[in-house]
Write a protein that binds this DNA or RNA. Structure first.
Length: 558
RNA sequence: GGCGACGUAGCUCAGCUGGUGAGAGCGCUCGACUCAUAAUCGAGAGGUCGACAGUUCGAAUCUGUCCGUCGCUACCA
C-alpha cells in the first residue's frame, strides 16, 4: 500500500485533471462548484505540490438544443448567448481561484478539427454507421423537435402536458409518437413525422471491452462503478450522434445533406482531448499533449457530477477504444448532488445560489472551505446559507484563522518580531511537529484517493492540535518567567502553523498566498523550517466572520 | 414500471469484504485559560444505527418485505 502510493505520487508523473464542461446556457450554481470544479482544483493543486505534471483542462460547452431555444426566446444568436455565459464562467473561475491550465470552449476551430478526426476514424473503422428514423418536425419553426420539446396528452394517465420523453404526472417514460395530440413546445403547432437520417455510434461494439475494463477499475467510488456496470449489463444501445440542428460542430462528411450537426454529447467529451492539444499548441510544444494521453505512467482523473457518469465511464471510454491508442480514464470520482434545504440545486428553477451570488456573500476561500467540508462524495449533501456561514464562523475562522492570528501576534510581540531559532526543542515540541508532519502524509494520501472532505478534516485536526499545544504550554505566561522557553514554544507553534498551512493550501489558495510575505510561498507538500530571524510583522486576520442575520435578510430581499 | 442509492446523535455527515462497550465536526452543558477574530483547550450529556422478519455463536454492516426520500431510465447534457 505504502509502496504503491510512493510510486503513484512519484514526482513528475503526468496527471490529467479533466473537469466537466459547464453548459453555457445559464449561470452555474454552488452545486456545480462543489460537484466538479472545486474538487478538481483542490486535487490539481495538491498534485502540483507533490511535484506531478498536472494538466487541468475544461471549457464552456457552447452547443446543444437548450442554448438555441433560449437564444431564440431572448432574440439573440446561440453564439451570443454562449459567449455571455462563457465570459461569466471565466470571471467566476478567476474569482474562485480555479487553477486551470487551459479553460477554453467547444466553439473553437481546434475543437471542431479534433472532433472531425475522431468522427472520421470511428467511421472508417466501422464504429459509426447511418440509419434513418421518424422524427417530429415543426413546420412553423422549420426544424425537427427533440423529444422534450414536444407536448401532448399522456396515453397512460391523460395528463395534457406530458413531454415527449416523459410524463411528469405519472412518471412514465414515453416515446413522442405515443403522445395524443402532440404539440410543438416552441410554436404550439402540430408537428408532423418526417423521415430523417443520422449517424449512429455503435456503442454495442465495445460492450465486452468496456465490461472487462470496468472489472479492472480499482479504488473507484462504489456508486460510480455500480451504475456503470449496470449500464453495460443492461446492454449498450447504439446512439445517434448527429442532430437536425444548425447550431453545433459541423459534420466532416456531407452524406446527410445540410441542416445536420454533430450532437453535443458526442463532441463535448472530446473537449478533454482537444483542450489538451490546444494547451500544447499554446505552449509551443504541439506534441506535448501525448504525455497525458499516451504515456503508460499517466493518470487521468475526471471530475464530474453523477448525472454525467455514463458519458465518462461508458461512452467516452468506448469512443477512445474505437479510436485506439489513447488512455482511458484512470478514475472518475463523480460526486453526488448538493441539495439546498432538501431540494436539488437547479439554477433554472431558482433553487440554491449561483456561484456569483455565493461570491457576493462570502470570501472566495471561505466559500471554498465551506463547500469542501460538505462535498457530496458519498451521498447527497444538504446545504444552506446558514450551514455555509456556520462552517465559516465556527470552523474556518475559529480554528484556523484564529490560530494564525494567535501565533503570529505572539511571535511578533514576544520574539522581537522575528522567527525564533529552531534549537532547544523539548519532546512535547517535537511531538507536535511530528503530528503535523504525519497529518501532511495522511492528508496527502487522502487527496490522492480523492477523499477531499477527509483530507480537509485532517488538516483542521492538525490546526486544533496546535491550539491544544498552546493551551498546554501557555507561552504568554512563559514570556514573563522564562523568555527562552517562550521563544522555543512560539517557534515550535510557528513551525507547526507553517506545516498546517501546507495541508490547507489546496483548499485556501488566496489566504495561503496572503501569508507568502511572512511565511514564504507554499511550493511543496512538506513542512519547511523558516529561516531564524525573518521578520514577523503585526498580523491582520485572514478571514472575517460572516454576519448571518445580515445575509439572510438580504437573501429574502433578493 | 425498471435500475441505482439513501434513511446512523439537535444539525451536517463517516462507518471496506459482519466480531473489542456505535464515531467525527458543529451545537449544547460544565470546567480551565485569557495570547488570539467573545476566539482556544478539557470533560460530559445525547442515538432501540427507518420498520419488521430472517441468516449467524454474533449485524448498523448479509438476505427478504415494508415505509419514507432521491436520482437515472439512454432525444437534458
Amino acid at each position: 500500500m505504502a509502496d504503491e502510493q510512493l510510486t503513484d505520487q512519484r514526482a513528475g508523473r503526468p496527471v490529467l485533471v479533466a473537469v466537466a464542461w459547464p453548459y453555457a446556457s445559464g449561470s452555474r450554481h454552488l452545486g456545480h462548484l462543489a460537484g466538479a470544479y472545486l474538487p478538481a482544483d483542490v486535487f490539481a493543486r495538491h498534485q502540483r505540490l507533490v511535484g506531478n505534471r498536472v494538466l487541468m483542462v475544461s471549457g464552456s460547452d457552447v452547443h446543444g438544443t437548450p442554448i438555441t431555444v433560449r437564444a431564440d426566446a431572448e432574440g439573440v444568436t446561440p453564439r451570443e448567448l454562449a459567449d455571455r455565459y462563457h465570459v461569466e464562467f471565466v470571471a467566476d473561475w478567476e474569482r474562485l481561484g480555479i487553477s486551470w491550465d487551459l479553460y477554453t470552449s467547444t466553439g473553437t476551430d481546434n475543437h471542431a478539427a479534433v472532433t472531425h478526426d475522431i468522427f472520421l476514424k470511428l467511421l472508417s473503422k466501422g464504429h459509426i454507421d447511418r440509419r434513418s428514423s421518424e422524427q417530429y418536425f415543426d413546420g412553423e419553426a422549420g426544424r425537427f423537435l427533440p423529444d422534450r420539446y414536444i407536448e401532448g396528452t399522456c396515453p397512460h394517465c391523460d395528463y395534457a402536458e406530458a413531454r415527449g420523453d416523459q410524463c411528469e404526472d405519472c412518471g412514465r417514460t414515453l416515446d413522442p409518437e405515443e403522445l395524443l395530440d402532440p404539440r410543438s413546445k416552441i410554436t404550439g403547432s402540430s408537428p408532423e413525422l418526417r423521415t430523417t437520417e443520422h449517424f449512429y455510434l455503435r456503442l454495442s461494439d465495445f460492450s465486452d471491452e468496456l465490461a472487462a475494463w470496468l472489472e479492472t477499475r480499482e479504488g473507484w467510488r462504489l456508486h460510480v462503478l455500480n451504475f456503470s456496470k449496470g449500464w453495460v449489463e443492461e446492454g449498450l444501445h447504439d446512439r445517434a450522434i448527429t442532430r437536425d440542428l444548425d447550431w453545433g460542430v459541423e459534420l466532416p462528411v456531407d452524406d446527410l445533406g445540410p441542416g445536420k450537426r454533430i450532437y453535443v454529447w458526442f463532441e463535448a467529451v472530446i473537449g478533454y482531448l482537444s483542450a489538451s492539444m490546444e494547451w500544447a499548441q499554446l505552449n509551443g510544444q504541439p506534441e506535448a499533449w501525448r504525455d497525458w494521453w499516451e504515456g503508460d505512467d499517466a493518470r487521468s482523473v475526471y471530475f464530474i457530477g453523477k448525472d454525467n457518469i455514463p458519458f465518462h465511464t461508458i461512452i467516452w471510454p468506448g469512443m477512445l477504444l474505437g479510436y485506439g491508442g489513447l488512455n482511458l480514464p484512470t478514475d472518475v470520482p463523480a460526486n453526488q448532488y448538493v441539495t439546498f434545504k432538501g431540494g436539488k440545486a437547479s439554477a433554472s428553477r431558482g433553487v440554491g445560489l449561483t456561484i456569483g451570488a455565493g461570491l457576493e456573500m462570502f470570501q472566495a476561500d471561505a466559500l471554498r472551505y465551506a463547500l469542501a467540508a460538505s462535498l457530496p462524495e458519498q451521498s447527497d449533501t444538504d446545504l444552506s446559507v446558514e450551514e455555509i456561514g456556520r462552517r465559516i464562523n465556527d470552523e474556518l475562522v475559529a480554528t484556523w484563522g484564529n490560530l494564525v492570528n494567535r501565533v503570529l501576534s505572539m511571535v511578533h510581540r514576544t520574539c522581537d518580531g522575528a522567527v525564533p531559532a529552531a534549537g532547544g526543542r523539548a519532546p512535547e515540541d517535537l511531538a507536535l511537529l511530528e503530528a503535523v508532519d504525519a497529518a501532511l502524509v495522511t492528508a496527502g494520501s487522502q487527496i490522492h484517493r480523492v477523499e477531499l472532505r477527509a483530507a480537509l478534516r485532517t488538516g483542521m485536526g492538525a490546526a486544533a492540535a496546535v491550539n491544544a499545544y498552546l493551551n498546554a504550554t501557555e507561552p504568554w505566561k512563559l514570556a514573563k518567567v522564562d523568555p527562552e522557553r517562550a521563544n522555543v514554544v512560539l517557534g515550535t507553534a510557528l513551525a507547526a502553523v507553517v506545516g498546517v498551512r501546507v495541508a490547507l493550501a489546496p483548499y485556501l489558495p488566496f489566504s495561503t498566498s496572503t501569508l507568502d510575505d511572512v511565511l514564504g510561498p507554499v511550493d511543496s507538500w512538506e513542512r519547511r523550517e523558516l529561516s531564524p530571524g525573518s521578520p514577523i510583522g503585526k498580523p491582520t486576520p485572514l478571514f472575517a466572520k460572516v454576519d448571518l442575520d445580515v445575509l439572510l435578510s438580504d437573501q429574502v430581499d433578493g
